[in-house]
Amino acid sequence: MANHIQSLEGLEALLKDKIKGQSGNIVINLIGIPKISRSNDIIGNCLQEWLPEWFQDNGLNLEPNPETQAFPDFIAHFDNHEEMVDIKCWNYLNNPAFDIANFDSFYNVLYNNPAKLFAKYLTIGYTPQKHGFTIDYVGLKKLWDITGPSRKRPLNIQVKRQRPYAIRPISFARHPNTSFNSPDELIQAVVETRKLFPNDEIKYSEADWFNKLSLTLEHYRHKM
Rank of each mutant, 00 (worst) to 15 (best):
I135V: 14
T127H: 09
I135Y: 01
L117V: 06
L155W: 06
A119Q: 13
T123V: 12
K116I: 12
I124D: 08
N156T: 11
T127I: 12
L140V: 10
K152L: 13
L143K: 01
R151Y: 11
K130P: 04
K116E: 11
G148Y: 00
V138S: 04
I157E: 10
G132T: 06
A119T: 11
D145T: 01
I124Q: 01
G125I: 00
R151S: 13
G148Q: 05
T123H: 05
G132I: 03
G132E: 11
D145S: 04
K130E: 15
D145F: 00
P154C: 08
F118A: 09
I157V: 15
L143N: 08
K120F: 01
I124V: 14
K142H: 13
L117W: 00
P128R: 03
H131W: 07
I124Y: 00
D145Q: 10
K152D: 14
L155F: 09
G125C: 07
R151V: 12
Q129S: 12
G132N: 06
F133H: 05
L155M: 10
Y137M: 10
R151D: 14
K120S: 09
Q129Y: 02
L117M: 13
K120V: 00
P154Y: 09
P128C: 07
I146C: 03
A119F: 01
Y126F: 15
G139R: 05
K141P: 02
S150Q: 10
H131Q: 14
I146S: 00
G139S: 14
D145N: 15
G125F: 04
L155A: 09
L143R: 03
F118E: 12
Y121R: 02
I135M: 05
K142Q: 13
P128Q: 07
L117E: 06
G139K: 07
S150K: 03
I124M: 05
K142I: 08
P149N: 13
I135P: 03
R151P: 07
G132Q: 04
L122A: 05
D136N: 15
K130T: 14
Y121Q: 03
Y126I: 00
T123Y: 02
P149K: 13
T147P: 05
G148I: 02
P154S: 14
G139I: 02
V138R: 01
P128A: 07
Y126W: 05
V138Y: 01
G148L: 04
K120W: 02
G132D: 12
V138P: 03
T127Q: 14
Q129V: 09
I157P: 06
T123A: 13
F118N: 11
K120I: 00
Y137W: 09
V138W: 01
Q158W: 11
K141N: 15
K142R: 15
P128K: 02
A119S: 14
L155I: 10
P149C: 12
K142T: 13
Q158K: 14
G148N: 06
F133M: 01
Y137P: 06
P154I: 08
R153A: 12
T123E: 08
H131N: 15
Y126T: 02
T123G: 06
K130I: 10
L122C: 05
P149I: 07
S150C: 10
T127M: 09
S150P: 11
N156P: 09
